[in-house]
Simulated scan of single mutants.
Amino acid sequence: MMDPVEVVRGSGPIVLGMPHTGVDVPDDIRKALNATGRRLTDTDWNIHRLYDGLLDDATTVRATFHRYVIDANRDPSGESLYPGQNTTGLCPTTDFDGKPLYREGMEPDEAEVERRLDAFHRPYHAALKAELERVHTKHGVAILYDCHSIRSHIPFLFEGALPDFNIGTDRGTTCDPEIERIVAACCNSAYGYTSVVNGRFKGGWTTRHYGKPETGVHAIQMELAQRSHLKAEAAPFDLDERNANSLRHHLGEILHALDTWAREQTSGSK
């Protein structure tokens, strides 16, 4: 079993959170999963590759465990992010299509959920909190940019097709309005791409938990439709290098613009 979290420390004000790119599943949990669960379909496939090297001095905090083990972007209390809507929970028992993930009678009980919180969820967030505090101490400001992707069509979760860029700030509460404006402007100017702010995805627990702009810690979530960078939104979920390179150009613009804004706050020139 590898470490539950991987940290690449940078010197700049941007922290990239990656809670859903990991595919590590401990043997005891894998044995409890059924064939659907073992496919690990609901992974943020290749997101760590997509953002790699876009901003040299960014910090990256990445969960190595799969979201079917425990979802690092869910409230540890188990409270739903979207009350009244279909979603998946802290320790998911169904996939994004509503299909069971576990063999009959093998779903995690309360004790097992608590064990997974201690072994996976809490270490990830301890690392993320520590990096945000370090960055904030150094710069007087920190921006958590939470990196996600999802299939474009999932009727169980939402109607129709998602835009390419899905920006979430919990209705503008998790970051300075200028951060939301900068990201939205970059996405709107990306020719051939579609975007929305606070649509179906308004920011997960990570964004909502850490985004406290009054303290100088800002958070924004980017949910990318997987059609924008994968060859197909089905196994083996390979990266489409041409489309990925085009998308990386725009993602790089976003990160560099946020980095510039954050440094201007520190210098007092804004």
Rank of each mutant, 00 (worst) to 15 (best):
G168K: 08
T194H: 01
E241F: 12
H121I: 01
L81G: 14
L258K: 00
V113G: 00
P92W: 01
V23W: 11
T87N: 11
G84W: 05
H148V: 10
N86A: 12
G252Q: 02
A185K: 03
R122F: 13
M1S: 12
T169C: 07
D97R: 02
N198G: 00
A111P: 03
C186M: 04
R67V: 06
V197Q: 11
P92Y: 09
E180A: 15
L55C: 02
M1G: 13
R39C: 06
N73P: 06
T260A: 14
E133N: 03
Q221G: 09
R67A: 11
V217W: 07
L90I: 07
H66T: 10
Y82T: 08
E178D: 14
G211L: 04
T93G: 09
T169R: 05
N188K: 05
R115V: 07
V183K: 01
F158P: 00
V217T: 14
A72I: 08
H66D: 13
I47F: 02
N46F: 07
R263M: 14
D57K: 04
V7D: 09
R208A: 12
M18S: 12
K231G: 05
S77K: 00
K270D: 06
A126P: 06
F165P: 03
P19I: 03
E180V: 13
N86Y: 03
N73D: 15
R103D: 08
L54K: 08
D164K: 01
P163T: 05
A232W: 04
T207L: 09
Y191S: 14
E112R: 08
S246H: 13
L55M: 09
R115F: 12
S80F: 11
H250C: 00
A35P: 03
Q85I: 07
C187Q: 00
P26F: 02
K138F: 05
G37R: 07
M1N: 11
Y102T: 07
A63C: 15
S189H: 11
G10E: 06
L157N: 08
D28F: 14
T87D: 15
E178V: 13
G17Q: 05
E178P: 00
G192I: 10
Q226A: 10
M222I: 15
G37H: 01
G252D: 02
K138R: 15
Y193R: 02
T41H: 10
E180W: 06
H229M: 12
